[in-house]
Design a protein around this nucleic acid. Structure first.
Lengths: 134, 134
DNA sequence: GCAGGATAAAGACATTTTGTCTGAAAATCA
DNA sequence: TGATTTTCAGACAAAATGTCTTTATCCTGC
């Protein structure tokens, strides 16, 4: 049938991470960071990755400046959310709740993770009480 | 460089889902479910998918019976856990905490849901204390 | 026992994805 | 203007993935 490509590829993700860390960047900056000791062709590779990320609306290109500057439009948290939703779609009929439950049951959470989760739940309780809804 | 294949492919996942629902199954059962109105070649397709799932240790084949019966060794929850961990590895430096945050914030949790989660957390804490590990 | 039908096993194949690279056009600057 | 850098368009190879062909093997009803 029709294969579903990855939202963001491994190489594309490496580029995105740089942009998350550094904000607006040029192709050269990215290339130097991602491929130190790089010959000459990696520059074009980064360009192609940026073009693909752009086509998928993960970044924007500012053509007003020279050289062009690139910036992420999809942040790390947003991508996390999308990946989680995608996992939910494939494995839980679209619902996120089983992910949370499974995670808690799975024994993968550290004590710190558990504490943090308790805090989040407490906040929800407070929020619910404040608004008077269940 | 070297691409990282998917843990479980889309077509492979369809097979897995069937096995999660039905337990031990034969190739024919799977084929009939997954490709109704199927010509003749889909049978071999399912076979190949099973072979690959087997090579990756997601299923076992029982050769004692005829025809062979296949059964999942990795459950839905286990796969969910792996996907979440993988997301954490790629986007959160391996930490699950950001996932928890995202999940709690975007999921609609009822008061009952929250209580139930707290219960699970308490159990985990007790378990941890009993075993003396973190 | 044997013919016929089903299953198993091995591998080939086409298409898509993905990372990389080449070459030429356009822009900047000394 | 000439040199350097950047942009742009497209080619490419390797790998992944879904599918199919073929042949060997097994079991069934007669």
């Amino acid at each position: 049938m029709s294969r579903t490509p990855q939202d963001v590829t491994e190489a594309e993700l490496a580029v995105l991470q740089q942009m998350w860390d550094q904000g607006a960047v040029t192709v050269r900056q990215l290339t130097d960071e991602l491929y130190p000791r790089g010959g000459g062709s990696e520059y074009a590779t980064v360009q192609k990755l940026l073009e693909r990320l752009g086509r998928k609306n993960y970044i924007v290109r500012n053509r007003e400046v020279w050289p062009h500057m690139f910036e992420a439009t999809v942040g790390r948290d947003e991508l996390i959310g999308r990946r989680l939703q995608s996992t939910a779609d494939q494995l839980c009929d679209g619902s996120l709740q089983p992910l949370l439950t499974t995670l808690v049951k799975s024994d993968k959470l550290s004590a710190r993770d558990r504490e943090s989760l308790r805090g989040l739940l407490d906040n929800l309780d407070k929020e619910a009480k404040r608004k008077g809804s269940s």
